[in-house]
Each structure stands twice: as structure tokens, then as C-alpha cells.
Design a binder for these strands. Structure first.
Ligand code: FES
Ligand code: FES
Lengths: 147, 147
DNA sequence: TTTAAATGATACCAATTAAGTATCAGTTAG
DNA sequence: CTAACTGATACTTAATTGGTATCATTTAAA
């Protein structure tokens, strides 16, 4: 069970780049290099972020992208919703109807609880909080992999 | 973000069928009808459950499948692991190496925590517990959809 | 005013995974 | 003997994921 896909992963990292250069426009090229994200893939992704009101852009030479909102207001949960759809357990064919299939329904009941737990956890992680973690970690150069 | 895929979903329901007929062999045909699961798909799935020691079978006429273990000992988490692989966040290219990409690593750190939370929740839900929920719910016939 | 460096918007492609189907061989109760 | 099963495996189809390419438009700066 994979939780985050590449798009969400890349989006988090791109937003971390933007958040660490507040008030400046970073080009897709620069972000791609900084975070090792495939250029064209990143550009599409940034467009989606614009459409969802998370970043703004400036066209033309020396243009680029800038974080629109407060980094602490951008939760990973929102990014998951944008790039992977709403956190749901398994689509239920009987929504809004009578339960033909009570067994599945019972499972759903349990699982809606877990959905809320997961959403809650991802709500707590924001670009702002990650950036702070990053800065704290930065004090120890060349750190080992945590796992 | 979809948590459970069809296979896991079907497996849970098939096991609920088996658990509610303890000591008897149910044929794939019967289970498929009872739970509205595609017959051949179900059969493959049952084989996997046999290989993982959750179910035993009897061949030949009036053969079928029977739950091998205590329903309370079969957690949904185990089913997720069987049919969707271990709960993981996003495969990390830098495992067991030095962190070239500290940003992603910081996210991983947070997310490994969430993994544990999720696993814990799914560990608590077992075929046995679901069956009891089901029986409790059964007292109210034709109940409405919970969501 | 020309040009190079950007974004905006799409269309396309390849690989992988998920979901479902089909077939044939072997087993067993009746 | 035979009908009803499981065991094993191969196949097909659809959807998703990850990535690439292209062309038009905008803009700062030489
Ligand atoms: S059957 Fe799906 S929620 Fe009731
Ligand atoms: S970069 Fe993945 S754990 Fe360190």
C-alpha cells in the first residue's frame, strides 16, 4: 500500500523550495534542478498548484513561481487531495442508497474512522512545519538516512 | 487516495462469509454469490489466502473453503499486506545510503509515524470484530447507509 | 526592436498495476 | 461414472502513473 505518489512527493518538495525563497519568483528550471524533479512533469504540477490557488506565477523572462499562501496553511493533506483525490477507503457502490451489502458497510464504518485519523495526521504536517524540521536537521550536515 | 483495493475488499467479505459458517466448507460458488464477487477472481484470491495459511480447502465434490485461524486473529492489516504489500509511504531512492535529499527524508520521518498509526488501526480491525459488528447491525433490518 | 527565457495549455507515450476471464488438469462424494 | 469441486496458470482489458514533447504567449533586457 503506497501512500504518496510521485506527484504529491514532488509537490511537497517544490513547495519547500518556494517556501524557502519567500517573496521571490523561482523558475521551474531552478526548482527542477534543486529537487531533482523531471522538468516537464514539474511544470504541469505547478500549473495544478496555480489552479488550486497555492502558488502564483509571473510569465516571461525572469518569471517563475511564488508561494501564494502562508506555508503553515499548506497541509500535506491538501496536496494529497489535489494529486491523489480525497482520502477514501474503497469506493462504495451503494452510497446514498439502502445497504444491499451490509457486510461491506460495517467495514466502511470502521474505516471511515481510520480515514479521519489519517486525514488528521496529514493535516498536521504543513510546508511550514516541514521547513522548520528541515532547518533543524540542517544543523547536522551529511546526516544518515533515518530508517 | 484509495486505501483498499478490490482484492482486499473482496478478501474481507469472503472471510466474513467463511467466519459465519465455522467448521463447514463453503464453495467458491456460494461465496461468490453471497458476496457478489466475480467467481474466477475470487478463486484466485482464495488460493492466495490458502498459501498464506489463512484458509484451508477440501477438493472434489462438496468441497470448498474453511477458515483455518481464529477470526479474531485475522486482522485487516494482514490482508492489506497480502494483497497490497506492506504499508509504505513512497519508495525512497536513497534507502540505506546517505541522504542526498534531505527534504524528502524529513517528510519520510513524519510519515513513518503515520504509517505506524495506520497499521495500528488496521491491526485492531479483525474478521472477528467485523463479524460481531455485523451481527449487532443485523438486529436493525434494512438499515440505511451510514455515510 | 529583437531575442532569449519564461509560463500556459495540451497532446502524447510507455510502463505498470488492477481487475477480470478462461482453461485444463486433478480430486472426490455420491 | 460423473458432476461438482479445487489447483494452477495463462491471458486480456482497463485504468493509473510517470514522463515527454510541442507550440503559443508573455516579458525583461540587450
Ligand atoms: S453499503 Fe456502502 S455504506 Fe452501506
Ligand atoms: S532520503 Fe529517504 S530516508 Fe533519507
Amino acid at each position: 500500500m503506497k501512500v504518496l505518489n510521485k506527484k504529491t512527493d514532488y509537490a511537497v518538495r517544490a513547495l519547500l523550495s518556494l517556501a524557502s525563497s519567500p517573496g521571490r519568483y523561482l523558475s521551474a528550471k531552478v526548482i527542477a534542478a534543486e529537487q531533482e524533479i523531471p522538468y516537464q512533469f514539474l511544470r504541469r504540477l505547478l500549473q495544478e498548484l496555480i489552479h488550486h490557488g497555492l502558488v502564483v506565477s509571473r510569465e516571461g523572462a525572469s518569471g517563475g513561481f511564488m508561494l501564494k499562501r502562508d506555508p503553515d496553511g499548506v497541509a500535506v493533506r491538501e496536496l494529497i487531495e489535489i494529486f491523489q483525490g480525497p482520502v477514501q477507503v474503497s469506493e462504495c457502490l451503494f452510497r446514498k442508497q439502502l445497504c444491499k451489502n451490509r457486510a461491506r458497510c460495517v467495514l466502511r464504518h470502521q474505516i471511515l474512522r481510520i480515514e479521519r485519523v489519517v486525514q488528521n495526521e496529514f493535516e498536521k504536517i504543513t510546508i511550514g512545519s516541514l521547513l522548520r524540521d528541515l532547518e533543524a536537521a540542517g544543523k547536522v550536515p551529511q546526516q544518515e538516512c533515518i530508517e
